[in-house]
Amino acid sequence: MAPPLSHTIEIRVRFGETDPYGVAYFAAILDYFKRGMDEFLRSRGLPPDLAYRNPKRNYGFPVVATACRYRAPVRFDDLLMLRTRVVRVEKSGATFGFSLFRTEAGKDILAAEGRISCRSIDASWTPVPLPAELRNILSAR
């Protein structure tokens, strides 16, 4: 089996994403994951808005499930590395995996890891098979 498709971005923790102790609020991490998904799609030549809501081709690709395991705190102004990868492509959807790292004393520390699953739907929110163009983008090596 070929290695999973992946894409890496840098993210700087902004002040507004932190709690009173300067630690990134838990929902900010999920936002980082979503940002990673957006940039993954862009890196494959598909604008995210056309993946998530494509009225011309009559499909959407909403998030249906998320999971996150918080391993180490990230703080205001930390520069993070987020790796996004395709974990699974199914008949009607796909699951993305995420690994978020911060650097401390020259070592990469796993700060969080998680998954986001999306499903393909039509305009009436009925599940439909993954459109070929999206399947190709998520499956091509």
Rank of each mutant, 00 (worst) to 15 (best):
F96E: 03
A112Y: 07
D49S: 14
S6P: 02
T84H: 11
I109D: 12
A105M: 10
R135L: 00
I116G: 09
I9F: 13
L41S: 04
G36Q: 12
L46Y: 10
A65S: 12
D108R: 12
L41A: 06
A51I: 15
F61I: 02
N136T: 00
A112N: 02
A105V: 03
H7E: 04
R44W: 13
G60R: 07
K91H: 13
L50I: 03
C68N: 04
P3N: 06
R35W: 06
F61M: 13
R135M: 00
P62T: 08
D38L: 03
A94K: 05
A24C: 02
R135I: 00
A132Y: 00
G93L: 11
A111T: 02
P55F: 07
R53W: 14
R85V: 06
A24H: 04
R135S: 00
S6I: 03
R88F: 02
N58Q: 15
M37K: 12
T18F: 07
I121Y: 07
L130D: 00
L30R: 08
D19A: 12
L79H: 11
P3Y: 06
G22H: 10
I11A: 07
Y25V: 02
F15S: 07
P3R: 06
I137K: 04
A67R: 07
S92C: 11
N54P: 14
I109M: 14
Y52V: 15
P127E: 08
D122T: 10
T84V: 11
F40E: 11
I137T: 01
P4N: 15
Y21R: 09
N58P: 05
I109Y: 08
F98M: 09
M81I: 01
S120Q: 00
W125K: 04
W125D: 14
I11F: 15
D78W: 07
A24M: 05
N136Y: 00
Y70K: 10
T84P: 10
L50M: 14
A65E: 11
A105G: 10
A105D: 15
L46K: 06
T103H: 13
P20H: 05
E133Q: 08
T103Y: 14
T95R: 06
R141L: 12
S124N: 04
V87R: 15
I116N: 10
P3V: 06
V89T: 02
V128N: 05
I9N: 07
N136A: 00
G22C: 10
V74N: 05
P62A: 08
A27D: 04
V87G: 06
R12W: 06
N136I: 00
P127L: 11
D108V: 04
F40R: 09
A132D: 03
E39C: 15
S99D: 14
L46E: 08
T95S: 14
A132R: 01
D31L: 05
V89Q: 01
L138M: 13
G16P: 06
L30C: 04
L110T: 13
A123S: 10
A65C: 01
E133Y: 01
W125Q: 08
E104M: 06
R141W: 05
W125H: 07
R69K: 06
N58Y: 08
V13M: 12
S43P: 15
L134N: 01
R53G: 05
L100C: 13
T95F: 04
F76H: 11
P131Y: 02
R71G: 03
L46W: 09
Y52I: 05
Y70H: 09
D78V: 01
